[in-house]
Simulated assay, not measured.
Amino acid sequence: MADSPRLLRLQAGTLRLDVAPDAGGSIARFEGTWDRGGRQGRVDWLRPASEQGLARRNPLAMASFPLVPFCNRIRDGRASFEGRDIRMPPNHPGDPSSPHPLHGIGWLRPWTVTLAGGHHASLRLEEPASAAWPWRFAAEQHLELTDQALRVTMTVTNHDTAAMPVGIGHHPYFPHPPGTRLTSPAAAMWMGDSQVMPTTLEANDVVARLREGVVLADLDLDNNFVGWEHRTLVEWPLDQHGPRRSLVMEAHPPLDYFVLYCPRGYDHFCAEPVSQCTDWLNLLPHYGRGPLGGARLAPGETLEARFTLAPRWE
């Protein structure tokens, strides 16, 4: 087994963040301490990276990882944009046979540390053009930890000579003990086929339940949501991990969409702030940008996205 990658540690008040630049620029751990009635303990606000995952530098075993220059999947890795063809091979570390590459490029590359301090860390990725993604670009992540929240700012800059399509986001894994509730208002949900590729857009019962708040164990989803109101509330009950607690994830445009991955029976789920939906480039001619998102960056142009994770005790 390979040695575990280096970790950058940020600390502020009761919160602690570990970042793994060599494992796709991922967050490896986001945790806090609690003190109630003389009892003390630690709680993970995100699912912590496993030792094996760290040793293998596997982003899918991390607490969260960046999504750039696109989010979710592209059908068969094939799309075209303004005269350039994307020919991306399968890239799923756990399922090499999956024909639909996912999550972009940044999550599978080591990132360069450009700043590391007590409360701040900055990472950078430079990516040349290739057949898989025929545009040269750079991406950055700025992570700031306060005693109240984690703030993440991401940018992607087009360093090519032609306009580039782009999506941006992050992929947090949250603990899912029994009784976890989620409230996440949105307008509609993309229904998917057996390969988790979008087929139709619906304002259905799931959308209504998420708006009011739902026990996650009642859902079994891997779907994109449109018209997200930029706020998701996660609530955890009193349990062996600690007192009643919650976390608010808030984002700003262009993170106007979110993905909810909550397979029944799993001990974690994902609620991902993203700027575009699955296979947006291939679906744009049929549905337009509104239900799909995504951006067009001219040469030299930069797209910025921001979100926060704010834990709180009840």
Score class of each variant (00 low, 15 high):
E31P: 00
A61S: 13
D76E: 04
I86L: 15
P66M: 09
Q52I: 12
N58Q: 11
R39F: 11
A63T: 15
P90Q: 09
N58R: 06
I74F: 03
H92S: 05
G53C: 07
W34Q: 13
F81E: 03
L60G: 02
F81D: 05
H92D: 13
M62W: 02
L60V: 03
H92A: 05
G37W: 06
W34H: 15
I86C: 04
D35Y: 12
R56Q: 10
D35H: 14
P48G: 12
S50I: 00
F65I: 11
P90A: 10
M88H: 11
A55Q: 15
G32I: 08
R57H: 07
R84P: 12
R57E: 12
A61M: 01
N91G: 11
C71N: 08
R36P: 05
R39L: 11
L67W: 06
R73S: 03
R84H: 07
V68N: 04
N58A: 08
D44H: 14
A63D: 12
S50M: 10
G41H: 15
G32Y: 06
P59I: 10
R47S: 15
G53M: 03
R73A: 00
L46P: 09
R47N: 11
S64M: 13
A55K: 09
D35G: 07
G77I: 06
G53H: 06
P48I: 15
G32Q: 13
M62V: 02
F65E: 12
R36Q: 09
R75H: 05
P48C: 12
G37L: 09
L60K: 06
N91Q: 08
N91L: 08
D44C: 11
A79F: 00
L67P: 07
D85G: 01
R42H: 14
R36C: 13
C71L: 02
V43F: 12
G53P: 02
R78C: 07
C71Q: 07
M62T: 00
G38S: 12
Q40C: 01
F81R: 02
R73T: 00
F70A: 02
E51V: 14
F65H: 07
D76V: 00
F81H: 00
I86F: 10
G41R: 15
R56G: 13
P90Y: 08
S64G: 09
S64I: 02
D85A: 05
A63E: 13
W45G: 10
P66N: 04
P69A: 06
L60P: 05
L54Q: 00
P59M: 07
R47G: 06
A49P: 00
M62R: 02
A63K: 14
P89F: 10
I74L: 06
L60F: 02
Q52F: 09
G41T: 07
L46H: 10
